[in-house]
Design a protein around this nucleic acid. Structure first.
Length: 136
RNA sequence: GCUGCAAGCUAAGCUAUCGUGGCGCCAAUGGCGCCAAGGAAAGUCCGGACAGCACAGAGCAACGUACCGGUGAAGAGCCGGGUGGCGCCAAAAGCGCCAACAGAAAGUGCCACAGAAAAUAACUACCACGCCACAAGCGUGGAAAAGGUGAAAAUGUGAGGUAAGAGCUCACAACUUUUUAUGGUAACAUACGAAGUGGGUAAACCUUGCGUGCUGAAAUGCCACAUAAACCGUCGCCUGAGAGCGGCUCGUUCGAUGACGGAGGGUAGGCAGAUUGAUCCCGUUGCGUAAGUUGCGGGACAGAUAAAUGAUAGCUCACGACAAAAUCCGGCUUACAGGUUUGCAGUAAUU
RNA sequence: GGCUCCGUAGCUCAACUGAAUAGAGCAUCUGACUACGGAUCAGAAGGUUUCAGGUUUGAAUCCUGACGGAGUCA
């Protein structure tokens, strides 16, 4: 029986705790996909939380106005929402929990198509990492 | 009609699919319905509300403020008036714009260069006297009338007066302070009289009047979880360390398994504060020159907490400026595409 | 959200109780020295003191507003 796939991004699927985020920056690993930098941390599965939790940020350094920062965060969030489902299923199957944080490091407000493309690449990379750690 | 400048208002809409925050309902990890940023949400420049500490105050200091009246919860806001300055105009009247607009006759400081001198003015020239036979020169004194300067030079003109001169005296004029009278709530204006005229600077110190307790939602209260009632140093145990009292002193209250400092450890979750209030908008009524305000009727108002409004497609002559709430209000300031209204300037055509 | 501080040559800093030519080092340019370069020596250029008003005879300095940039809080 095939269920209709939903592209949700509710409260529980986001990183909410200040403590967790600080831990992620301190202990987690990272890689870059041109204008986006990705911090990630893989853990054993937790029954209370979903298998994939996510956060976004854009620095005040390059974007003075809150309008621009909000715009970037919304674009990344939208791109992430439409593409993260495969990774989520993979993690659930492998019984793992992943915290991810996207930071936008570019200097200009990007196009939606660019963000969509780069987010896809980043998620693929995360998927590969996931496979490696599961096999090891 | 077009172009430019200034000011006011407004701040694209609709449909479909997927998705986000809050509230309500169904009955439950989902579905349905409703609502979901701005005129500046910004800068944090003023003023409050509210909260905590204190509530026994007084003095000093510090900070702010400064023509008058009104408005309002309050203000360095706004409205009206006065005074002064600038502009339009040949001038007046009038109109417009601007003003931190108390005091320099309480005291102190500063005023480069130039100039004799920049503030109890004597360098040159002037006058008197003395030294000297006279002159020249020197000395003592008088005297602000003349002297290239400078932003600023001792109120201006005339007459009297004198050794020479001087508001030294007088007349007229200018300005300052002020008694009285009149008008005005008042600032102030006008008239008459009196006293006086040795600069400027208070956005230099300062003086005078008035005002201000300090700290800001990372405030604060409650619940949950966790630990260290351990270690080191100093002081003290009622003749009292220290704390409230967050600038200081007096005063006052509390005060013993105590207080302060150092190093180190733990927590950093939830609820309240928190969104409907001095609220805003529209219509109307009365009061007021106006800002504003009274009554009546109707309508509107997000509440997140790593932080919610987005993406895609289509249509509409314009492909949409500045820009995102974070406790809440009143003002000020700054940014702003396009549309629209009004005023001013220039220009073209027509009647 | 609140609070505090700072803007001077291309860079790092002076001059901040007002006084007229805004000064020093590095860097840049020109010349000398050298076969050439470096180093050295001599000289030059470079500033609307972040911007706009105001006070004053006079402002980098004092006052007000704007713009930009740092730091800080539990």
């Amino acid at each position: 029986m095939e269920q209709k796939q939903r592209y949700t991004l509710g409260k529980t699927e986001r990183l909410k705790s200040r403590k967790l985020i600080e831990q992620l920056f301190k202990e987690g690993k990272s890689f870059s996909v041109q204008p986006i930098r990705v911090y990630w941390m893989l853990q054993p599965a937790n029954n209370n939380a979903p298998s994939l939790q996510f956060g976004v940020a854009a620095g005040t350094k390059h974007f003075k106005h809150a309008v621009d920062r909000n715009r970037i965060k919304r674009l990344i969030r939208e791109a992430y929402r439409l593409q993260k489902n495969d990774l989520q299923q993979q993690l659930a199957a492998a019984d793992l929990h992943l915290n991810v944080f996207f930071i936008f490091t570019g200097k200009e407000v990007p196009d939606y198509n660019l963000v969509f493309e780069k987010t896809g690449i980043a998620l693929q990379k995360l998927s590969e990492i996931c496979v490696q750690s599961a096999s090891a």
